[in-house]
């Protein structure tokens, strides 16, 4: 997994709360593999109308924000369906960081698995950054995961992230390799547990 340390780039404000994973990646694209170009259909139904024309009012369609590295949104970004493909769509479109007051729990778990940073700020701070970007679309935003800061214009904001997730992103850790190193402990737990909770084993061939 790619490490995340620092990032500076174009930031697209999406001034909406409860942006769910159905909006990030509509369900009909869940049949696609990543190789089919899932980044192209990011926010598809928010970006395009029923005839396939761009909705000019949607921020990512505006010239300054067409290929953002960062998205800034209102509360509860990524709520809803557990589809990890929503994270693939963001990453494959070039987004490496989402800044918002809160995130869907499964979404932020999926994000860390793919090197996407979810940076938590307060409602007021998110509004302030969104306003600053709306007033000045070219304003670059700098994110520093070691310092846990977001710099936007002349303002610096501290953001929150679970320390475990922070360490994983900074190191680009692979979970499976880590778990494999505990193989003996897992085997010991399993053997003891089978005696302790025999009812937890499903009845064979019912």
């Amino acid at each position: 997994m790619e490490k995340f340390v620092k990032l500076t780039g174009s930031a697209c404000p999406i001034d909406q709360s409860n942006v769910n994973t159905d909006q990030i990646l509509p369900a009909r694209y869940l049949k696609w593999t990543r190789a089919m170009g899932i980044g192209k259909v990011l926010f598809h139904d928010l970006r395009f109308d029923a005839e396939g024309n761009e909705r000019p009012e949607f921020p990512i369609n505006k010239p300054a924000w067409r290929n953002p590295k960062i998205i800034v949104a209102a509360r509860n970004f990524g709520c809803g369906s557990s589809r990890e493909a929503a994270v693939y769509a963001l990453c494959d479109h070039g987004v490496r960081c989402v800044i918002a007051p809160s995130f869907g729990d499964i979404f932020s778990g999926n994000a860390v698995q793919n090197g996407l940073l979810t940076a938590t700020v307060t409602d007021e701070e998110a509004s302030e950054i969104i306003d600053a970007l709306t007033a000045n679309p070219e304003l670059p935003v700098a994110v520093d995961l070691e310092q846990q800061t977001v710099v936007c214009g002349n303002r610096t904001y501290a953001f929150a992230i679970d320390p475990v997730r922070r360490t994983r992103l900074l190191n680009g850790w692979d979970d499976i390799a880590l778990t494999e190193s505990y193989r003996d402990k897992i085997a010991a737990f399993k053997s003891k547990d089978q005696t302790k909770r025999p009812w937890a084993i499903p009845a064979a061939n019912p």
Partner: peptide
């Protein structure tokens, strides 16, 4: 509920990391 990376992890190890 979990995402695809975690599904793969559970398939391979029957365990999951959680806080």
């Amino acid at each position: 509920g979990i995402g695809a990376s975690e599904v793969a992890h559970v398939l391979m190890t029957q365990t999951i990391w959680q806080k």
